[in-house]
Design a protein around this nucleic acid. Structure first.
Lengths: 209, 209
DNA sequence: CCTACCGATCGGTAGG
DNA sequence: CCTACCGATCGGTAGG
């Protein structure tokens, strides 16, 4: 499955996938502007001009990585929330899938969160809109919980920002051979989110139940 | 006070401070590799070679920004914790000053957290060591609280990573003309941290008291 | 997939 | 603080 930095052998040639994969690794490590196309080519053991058989431009490579990931994040969210019925379960699920993605796709997460400013229009606006939608949706859940009386009265935007960004940071320190499995981390972060939202309340459901 | 992007006038000339300040603004916006020295010079309305009267190199500019900030973060932490006597108050204070710094110095925070990989040795190792020390110190407080029975039994490293990174993210969205003052944000994040550490326990002190 | 090559721009230096 | 200039490297194209 993993073709990253595997040197080509026999008649195997570079592909759209392998170029994207090598770019992902290098963009994540050095940043978009810190990565030269010659480095991507070198990782694939081909010459720089040959890359253009598998991509349109360096910018196009970035756009593809960021837009694909951003759309997946939004789809993750929609599906996770749709399967739950209570606000608490929806938030737990939304944070779970978001945290999980950052542990299982740390390279994509690094690039999305560091190199968005390097995107050109109209891709930049498209991505910012998807992120805004995601953040507002989570914030809406927190606001709903506050209105329902199950969460503390507090600025919902601070909760949603803090929750999303603590998930993003997983990509900075997660290692596949580390102490925790992605699912453990995701579960724990789901709990963190609920604790932050609940505030000084107890774990139990609102007084009516 | 604020000299950023103020054009020079009369006999006023560029200074070490103004070069550092212009670099800070541009590094924060476009990243270290995404910023050209010619852009810094343009912001100061001088020619690129003239920058070298006020700096040693582009790399030196980055090193100065990152090391100064990293040392200040560690000093903030030491002073904040030294003034408190309980674990809860120490964590609250440590998170308060860290969050506050990210709201009051968003440019420094952006650069430190995005362009560390662009540092050369030995600066890179020095900065990583300071950050490691900070993270381990906060983690130690969480572990102490767990041992004392005031916090949930849980992986202390997940708590400390999540807390620190949610503070870092303040630099991404904070705007001086926004809804919340830095002190309000910092206070709220201090509470978030304690809620995460406490887990399903109530706010009250351990059973003994 | 390659070699050969393009103009542009990079960080930085010489010398005043 | 400037002009003039350096070698290196950038993303990308021509043409096969």
């Amino acid at each position: 499955m993993r073709r990253t930095s595997r040197p080509r052998s026999e008649r195997e040639t570079a592909s759209v996938y392998s170029v994207r994969d090598a770019a992902l690794t290098l963009f994540a490590r050095r940043g978009f502007h810190g990565t030269a196309l010659s480095e991507i080519a070198e990782a694939l053991q081909i010459r720089t001009p040959s890359l253009y058989n598998h991509m349109t431009s360096k910018q196009g490579l970035l756009a593809e990585i960021v837009t694909t990931t951003s759309h997946q994040v939004w789809e993750d969210y929609r599906h996770a929330v749709a399967e739950q019925s209570t606000i608490e379960d929806q938030i737990r699920a939304a944070v779970y899938v978001y945290a999980l993605r950052h542990a299982t796709h740390p390279r994509e997460a690094m690039v999305v969160n560091r190199d968005i400013a390097a995107l050109e229009e109209p891709t930049l606006s498209e991505v910012l809109e998807l992120r805004r939608r995601h953040e507002h949706a989570l914030r809406g859940l927190v606001e709903q919980g506050i209105d329902d009386g199950i969460f503390d009265r507090q600025p919902a935007s601070l909760v949603s920002f803090a929750v999303l960004e603590m998930c993003v940071s997983i990509a900075r320190w997660y290692r596949p051979d580390g102490e925790f499995a992605p699912e453990e981390i995701a579960r724990q972060y789901g709990e963190f989110a609920l604790r932050m939202a609940r505030g000084d309340r107890t774990t139990s459901r609102p007084s009516g139940l």
